[in-house]
Design a protein around this nucleic acid. Structure first.
Lengths: 210, 210
DNA sequence: GTCTATAGCTGGATAGAC
DNA sequence: GTCTATCCAGCTATAGAC
């Protein structure tokens, strides 16, 4: 009861800023501790210091909470990837982006799971929540185009390579760098391959009979 | 009631072979239809034509059912990957393995999810169930060694690349071949890269002073 | 807006008769 | 081994008082 009182005091303080924000924050700490799928309205309310009906005063359903979390995470992702770099070389920029993706993913694996793995049964993000993530992917496409990689199959190969590395890292060695340390080698391999493909293609254009 | 009767008839027939087998089969059809996490003992029992206590006569818990499914899937995986090939070239063999992995994964995405994605909260396969999968991974390691790729970082790069491609395919285009058609290009890229790394390393050995 | 109280459901698992 | 009946816990969500 005493504990409840301090929680409610905290609640009233945070209300001055935003009640929705406070609930979302509680949801994040909960899923970080107990897993993304373990979000429970009761547990969430109890931790934030309110009751379940109050949660429903701010969100119409549990999936609405997931959607708000997704929207927040997508904005964080876009902003993290859009921050300016202090290198010039185009290939270095691409590698820096990959490192950023690793850092973003590993700094909060629950967020990573929500954003990039379709693991919540029955949940689909709303278009509004999804939009910022699409902007970030468009940025990646631009980065590749800047070094002359535009073929759609190469974009697909790149996403598969990078998400494959990050997935392995998150799933099998979340605190280490067994796969993240392969980022540079992987980007080198990929860029070399794409440029070689381009050269052989231009040779074909010069000597079409070959 | 009439329906129940026919289900129980089917049950008695299947009992002659193996009760556990019949329950596992029902579990597979259930998770294929409703998702891996949606396995429910009640629903499972109802579909197979028995009651929940009967299920507990054959499996001590729900996770024991998952474990039996995992063990069966791991054996199927090992056998699928170990079947003989009818090509000779070592690089072709590696590519054939990748194609087999795609085919195996896409032919049953629930099975893929159980075997290769850690998505069930609280479930860990027992060592006995896991063993066949390890044998298959050892086969992949041997295949890479046959073409001179032995560096552990290259094994990690290879698994990340292949699982990345398969993950994208399973998650975003399960009926198509948007990523599976990149298998050959990806394997070429990877093998070329590893062999180039080897050449430059041997050069360093010949001229250690650079 | 926030509470108490509870509806209504589904889940895993078990007791005990047969 | 298989059933009926049930326990107990958890969940989302809501009714209605204040």
């Amino acid at each position: 009861m005493v504990v409840k009182t301090t929680e409610r005091t905290r609640w009233r303080e945070s209300r001055r800023r935003s009640a929705r924000e406070a609930i979302i924050q509680g949801a994040w700490t909960l899923v970080r501790e107990e897993g993304l799928a373990a979000l429970s309205i009761r547990e969430l309310a109890s931790r934030v210091g309110i009751t379940t009906p109050t949660v429903y005063a701010y969100f119409e359903s549990k999936n609405a909470i997931y959607d708000a979390m997704f929207g927040q995470a997508a904005i964080e992702f876009r902003d993290a990837m859009a921050a300016p770099h202090n290198v010039e070389d185009q290939k270095e920029l691409l590698l820096a982006d990959v490192h950023r993706f690793f850092a973003f993913s590993l700094s909060d694996t629950a967020r990573y799971q929500l954003l990039f793995q379709r693991t919540l049964p029955g949940f689909e993000p709303s278009p509004e929540s999804y939009a910022p993530a699409q902007q970030a992917l468009a940025g990646a496409r631009r980065r590749l185009a800047d070094i002359g990689i535009t073929a759609s199959r190469h974009l697909d190969l790149f996403t598969a390579l990078v998400t494959g590395l990050v997935d392995q890292q998150v799933a099998n060695d979340p605190g280490g760098k067994r796969w993240s340390q392969l980022a540079k080698e992987a980007v080198d391999m990929f860029v070399t391959h794409c440029q070689a493909a381009k050269v052989s293609k231009s040779r074909l254009l010069i000597h079409p009979a070959q």
